[in-house]
Nucleic acid binder design. Structure first.
Length: 274
DNA sequence: CGTATGCCCTGCGCGC
DNA sequence: TGCGCGCAGGGCATAC
């Protein structure tokens, strides 16, 4: 579930909590969490290190430390928990950083899809960071038009292109549906069928929907909360996602749900004509 | 090469 | 009440 707006929200909240803190010890409860390094190398490198900053790329956090960059992907159910006592979600805790102020930074992940990769100085760059498309919020209209034009011969539905991280990064299933509804474009349309006006509208709605979701501190459906346990507020703004059978807020028609690329896909059959 | 499908994993909600 | 099934999905491996 965490897509660009949720990861951005976690980045902002976590920055306030951990930058400047020193890691006194590392507890790794699920070794499968770590990519690239062995458990001993990983914990050894981070013990004594200091958090120096946090950035985001696509749906990943890049947690800067004095020992290197920690790349984190939350995937479906990953979350950070900043706590001292009575830490919640004990049974899904996968990694625990004991900090120099007596607090812990925990990573909990029910489904175990998330991963950590520590890139130490001089090491190979993280493969997860290569091949990513541009950040949607840094994208110019000219650039976006060129990107869509390059896909004009593609047989793939526009929704799957939006979700393709090598095309544009950070958009997942939820925001792809919401963006296409906002732009009044049917998710099964091919890139080559979009008019010039539709491409401009798509560009505008990508930015508008993502910015609004960040403003709302993300969407909380099942599990997503920030490091202090606060839910997002964007779930109340959703127009189509998981609203199958309900009335379209624009025209009153029933929202439909189909499967596309194996993912639930929601749209208004009237507002988003084929 | 481009595209499609299955899988990883766990918990929840549904039907019987 | 309890069981089994399908669903949720990001991104990768594999197949065509």
């Amino acid at each position: 579930m965490p897509e660009l707006p949720e990861v951005e929200t976690v980045k902002i909240g976590l920055s306030e909590l951990i930058i400047g803190r020193r890691i006194e010890s590392v507890e790794l409860r699920f070794p499968g969490l770590i990519r690239g390094l062995g458990v001993a190398e990983f914990t050894g490198a981070l013990t004594g290190a200091t958090f120096t900053g946090i950035d985001r790329r696509a749906k990943m956090l890049i947690i800067r430390t004095s020992a290197g960059d920690l790349i984190v992907h939350l995937k479906m159910s990953g979350r950070f928990i900043y706590c001292q006592n009575n830490c919640i979600d004990e049974r899904h805790a996968r990694a625990i950083f004991h900090l120099d102020n007596g607090y812990q930074l925990r990573f909990a992940d029910m489904r175990k899809f998330g991963f950590f990769r520590l890139v130490t100085g001089g090491a190979q760059p993280a493969p997860e960071l290569s091949g990513l498309g541009p950040e949607p919020l840094d994208l110019s209209l000219k650039q976006f038009k060129e990107m869509v034009f390059a896909k004009s011969g593609s047989a793939r539905p526009i929704k799957l292109i939006l979700m393709d991280q090598s095309f544009i990064s950070g958009i997942g299933n939820l925001y792809a549906d919401e963006i296409l509804f906002a732009a009044k474009i049917h998710p099964a349309r091919r890139a080559g069928s979009l008019t010039g006006e539709e491409v401009v509208e798509l560009y505008r709605q990508i930015k508008r929907v993502l910015l609004k979701a960040i403003d709302n501190r993300g969407t909380t459906f099942d599990l997503y909360v920030d490091a202090e346990g606060r839910q997002g507020g964007h779930q109340y703004e959703l127009k189509v996602y998981r609203r199958a059978g309900k009335a379209c807020s624009r025209c009153g028609a029933k929202i439909e749900k189909v499967k596309m690329g194996g993912r639930g896909t929601h749209f208004c059959p009237v507002c988003q004509e084929r």
